[in-house]
Design a binder for these strands. Structure first.
Lengths: 156, 156
DNA sequence: CTTGATGCAAATGGTTTGCATGTTT
DNA sequence: AAACATGCAAACCATTTGCATCAAG
């Protein structure tokens, strides 16, 4: 498990742990899936994108820069596989296409109604509320997908 | 001209404040919009649905029970108008169609990943977190649209 | 060599739009 | 009468699927 404490000290934004795709591929293989060019490439592009949340189409473009024969529909199938495997998390920040990021890189989103800007919030941010959810309703909130809409500082 | 107020609610089913559509229509008119059969009917069906979150298509079916000529695309246009006017709030609980409810009836949603069940949470539930959002990020959370995903009590 | 993965094209589902016509103000 | 709203069909966009072929195990 990646410790959030790894981003110690620095004043910079998010010191994000660079994801190594090999263990992920290994996990896939262990689950009976075959390792293909497309699957490796999709994971690598996700790793390269780091903080960005890429849509299936954006991901396809980037993958095709190296492997032009990889088809959009394959990327969709790959993303579905990776999501079911728990490696990627799908996120709907606004209307339009879904976006993906590594599940291990847990965080939430605050999306501005006006400018569309997305603020990433640390996973722990919603702790008080999710605990209350569990106590009051027996509902166990996912630590990786929570979206608030509202108005960001520069749009108020 | 549509049928006037038949909203003399007896037979009360839900413990929710019954919404009176007349003031809402008045607000619309005040903003320069014209009052039409479709607009009145959409608001009335929203009021009748109370707790349910209806999609554009469901809403259209219900409206058509009384006014068969009202077209799906008109309902979409009406919903967009009502949302822009701040009267309705659009919500994406899961994949599939968006759903709508009165903005005045503020609440949030906890959606179960497994069974799709939707728990409605009181508007005040997220208070501590939204305040922190404002303090830390200057982000003013909308009081009407916040969705948590996770696993509900009966699916754990 | 067997099973699963891919490319492609065509279908799908939700939503939007162009335009001629009809309705509200 | 002017401005706006509607019905309808057709376009649109993100995503999914059927099927013949191909590659990983």
């Amino acid at each position: 498990m990646p410790t959030p404490a790894e981003s110690v000290g620095s004043l910079a934004t998010v010191a994000r742990t660079t994801v190594d795709v090999e263990p992920l591929l290994e996990a896939l293989r262990a689950s009976g899936a075959k390792i293909t060019t497309a699957r490796r490439a999709v994971l690598e592009e996700c790793a390269r994108a780091e903080a960005d949340h890429l849509s299936a189409e954006e991901l396809t473009e980037r993958v095709q820069a190296r492997y032009p024969e990889v088809h959009l529909s394959t990327v969709y199938r790959t993303l579905e596989l990776l999501e079911r495997a728990g490696l990627l998390t799908r996120v709907h920040v606004n209307d339009g296409p879904a976006a993906y990021h590594f599940t291990a890189d847990a965080h939430h989103h605050a999306v501005c109604d006006r400018c569309g800007r997305v603020i990433e919030l640390p996973a722990a941010f919603f702790r008080p509320v999710t605990r209350k959810l569990e106590v009051d309703y027996g509902f166990v909130a996912s630590p990786t997908h929570l979206t608030v809409t509202g108005t960001c500082a520069s749009c108020v």
